[in-house]
Amino acid sequence: MHNDWGAFMTALANHLLELIFAVLVAYAVSLRNRFTAWLNARTTAAQRETLHKLATEAAALAESMMGGGAGALKLDKAIKYVSDRAATLGIKVSEQSIRAAIEKAVLDYKAQIKGGTAVAKTEQ
């Protein structure tokens, strides 16, 4: 009988250890998923910040190179500049997002020139 009790306790201890291990693995997976989501969100925010900086550079470059007028041509040059620089930095972004960032940079610039306040920085 004593031998049966020892076998029962050994089996119970093994099952408890398996259960604890399973809970720890599930917790580790949960932490990994949360960390991955956090990292992806930070990367996206950093990429958006870089996109806005590139758009401001592109708008200033197009304006200084081409002066007044030729808006469509300036926009095309600015889009190409941002697209090329973003690709060099390993940032994948759509042309629509690039155009939106450039348009915002131009609006901010015009607001500053006219003595108004710049458009508030977009939410990230």
Rank of each mutant, 00 (worst) to 15 (best):
H2T: 14
D4H: 13
W5V: 14
G6D: 12
G6W: 15
A7E: 15
F8V: 07
F8C: 05
M9T: 12
A11R: 11
L12N: 08
A13D: 07
N14I: 05
H15S: 10
H15M: 13
L16E: 13
E18R: 12
E18W: 13
I20R: 09
I20N: 06
I20W: 09
A22L: 10
V23C: 07
V23R: 03
V23H: 01
V23Q: 08
L24R: 09
L24F: 06
L24E: 09
A26I: 09
Y27L: 15
Y27F: 12
A28D: 10
V29I: 12
V29G: 11
V29K: 09
S30T: 08
S30A: 07
R32N: 10
R32Y: 12
N33K: 11
R34W: 04
F35A: 13
A37D: 06
A37Y: 03
L39G: 00
N40D: 11
N40H: 07
A41Y: 01
R42L: 00
T43G: 02
T44A: 11
T44N: 04
Q47D: 08
R48A: 00
R48L: 02
R48T: 01
E49R: 09
E49P: 00
T50P: 00
T50M: 10
H52Q: 15
K53R: 13
K53P: 04
L54D: 02
L54K: 03
L54V: 04
A55I: 01
A55D: 01
A55M: 01
A55L: 04
T56W: 09
E57H: 10
E57R: 06
E57M: 12
E57S: 09
E57K: 07
A58V: 05
A60Y: 05
E63T: 08
E63A: 08
S64L: 09
M65F: 07
G67N: 06
G68R: 15
G69V: 03
A70P: 00
A72Q: 15
K74S: 06
D76V: 13
D76C: 14
K77S: 10
K77G: 00
I79D: 00
K80W: 12
Y81I: 11
Y81L: 14
Y81C: 04
V82N: 01
V82F: 00
S83K: 13
D84M: 10
R85Y: 02
R85K: 09
R85N: 06
A86W: 00
A87G: 05
A87C: 03
T88F: 09
T88V: 10
L89H: 04
I91A: 02
K92T: 10
V93F: 04
V93Y: 02
S94R: 05
S94T: 12
E95T: 11
E95R: 08
Q96N: 08
Q96C: 01
Q96P: 00
I98Y: 04
I98H: 04
R99W: 01
R99T: 08
A100D: 06
A101R: 03
I102R: 04
I102G: 00
E103Q: 12
K104W: 10
K104L: 14
A105W: 01
A105T: 04
D108W: 06
Y109A: 07
Y109P: 00
K110H: 15
K110L: 15
K110S: 12
K110R: 14
A111I: 03
A111G: 08
I113K: 14
K114A: 15
G115A: 05
T117V: 11
T117W: 05
V119I: 13
V119S: 07
V119N: 11
K121V: 15
K121L: 15
E123A: 14
Q124D: 05
